[in-house]
Nucleic acid binder design. Structure first.
Lengths: 268, 268
DNA sequence: CTTGACCCTCACGTAGCGTGAGGCCGGAGG
DNA sequence: CCTCCGGCCTCACGCTACGTGAGGGTCAAG
């Protein structure tokens, strides 16, 4: 049995189901004067006539197109408004928002990649930037070890915004630092000497800017790894024989100079 | 002269300009506990330290990716949250919104087309649906005459949502009506007879459902045009000789029966 | 007369701030 | 010392388009 469509009109609930909107929406449109029911029962029930429903239907259509209620009101009430022009403006807005969202999506993709791979570079680019002795597996290993730590997150967020050129610049800076370390050792500066201290602090600054904030405690742990990890040790000793040990000792000495016992330092 | 970066930290204004956000945003993030300044002067000024700025920067990045503040809070504070998973969820949201907006855009395009051309059918489709005697220029003429009137707007909005199949159904209904009109005239029913009145009301209902709400006053004007416009007259007289005049008279008679003087009726 | 479905009017909550209002602080000039 | 201007502070309401109850009448059926 269909609803007894009394000739007077439909109640809010009936109108709402016919239009596919909520009762509250109809109430709201009533409140702001966008669409009032032209009839009502003596007890205050709203009754929507066929003409009311036509207007409501137009509202629903324009609302589905993403127009704001005030713009809809203008279109419906002000016959002077240029409807196609208003629609074209809205079309432009939609296009703009789509483009913006697509950029957001691309940024998210980069960020996801950064979190999952650590480096946003192809293997070819990695070799070109970090040199032939770079092993592409290292970033995967680093990810396995540090994934989930705040440091990894910070690193991932930064690397998501880095272009190959910026990676190149980082690699150059690092290579510069390696050279300086080798020259200092070669020149006879010992761990603990002012020159060595300066270089250790320079390493901390460069590292913090390139990867993530490095405390002196963390730097101590890193130095130990440089010496004990075969790959890292080979890298530094490749610059100058004995450099891995010299650098670790310099870091330890610098930490001691800042009141830290390198033998109890932890990564935190 | 750069700002005197007092070692303690930056004031809100300085932090805001560095981060590219407003002061109010920083206040807001403070209010909801997302990012508090860890220092403050005795007089209550906020001072943001370097660590604070790091956190703020991360917030800015994630906010630019479209994440909500609560989600950002989870990522920053709760090391247990799976960051890539959260990002992928967000990526899906963005993709969904893009698709939705693209549908909106398509709907807007249809609506704009409908307002500007009146019919969303190719000339071929028009001929196939309305028959070989249909003249594609008619819709352009109708647009020139009625553009800007509420009736045209209603018509355009409806036709924007109509598929060729629905147009076919409308054409069929109209053809049915034409046939019935011709048969009634042929059978000798006169304008004003109950049979003729029924057909006139049927025309009004069909027309209102297919194009726009038609009052009896408007129907009278339409009937006069059917008789006087050569194209329309040819159409009806092609169904049955003399049908254009018979139909116009039937509309007039029906209007009179409803208390309307057809000679003073206006389109409104 | 009761019951359950429906209706009414407040009125607060949402996300992320914008935008004043009204008033205190800090450094420079007179 | 006073004043002035720019910067800072804390309320606190405003914005979109309703969602979601709270508390209470209304309507048709049993």
């Amino acid at each position: 049995m269909p609803e007894a469509t009394s000739a007077d009109g439909l109640t809010v609930g009936q109108a709402a189901t016919r239009l596919g909107v909520t009762i509250r929406a109809l109430h709201h449109w009533d409140e702001i004067g966008l669409a009032r029911s032209s009839l009502s029962t003596p007890t205050g029930y709203r009754l929507y006539t066929a003409a009311d429903l036509e207007r409501l239907h137009r509202i629903v259509v324009y609302r589905e197109l993403g127009l704001g209620l005030e713009r809809i009101r203008a279109i419906l009430d002000d016959s002077a408004t240029d409807v196609p022009a208003a629609l074209r403006t809205q079309r432009q807005h939609v296009a703009d928002r789509i483009e913006h969202l697509q950029q957001l999506g691309a940024g998210l993709d980069r960020m996801i990649d950064a979190h999952e791979h650590g480096l946003l570079l192809t293997v070819q680019e990695q070799t070109a930037i970090f040199g032939p002795r770079w092993n592409p597996d290292w970033s995967a290993q680093a990810r396995q070890r540090y994934e989930g730590t705040p440091q990894w997150q910070q690193y991932a967020e930064q690397s998501a915004t880095r272009s190959p050129a910026e990676w190149q610049s980082i690699a150059d800076t690092m290579a510069d630092l390696d050279r300086s370390l080798g020259e200092s050792m070669q020149a006879g500066f010992t761990p603990g000497s002012p020159e060595a201290q300066l270089l250790v602090e320079r390493h901390r600054a460069v590292f913090s800017a390139s990867y993530f904030s490095l405390t002196r405690q963390m730097q101590v742990c890193l130095g130990r790894m440089y010496e004990s990890d075969p790959a890292f040790a080979a890298h530094y000793d490749g610059v100058r024989t004995g450099l891995a040990a010299w650098f670790r000792q310099s870091i330890d000495a610098n930490a001691r100079n800042h009141g830290i016992d390198p033998d109890t330092a932890s990564w935190h």
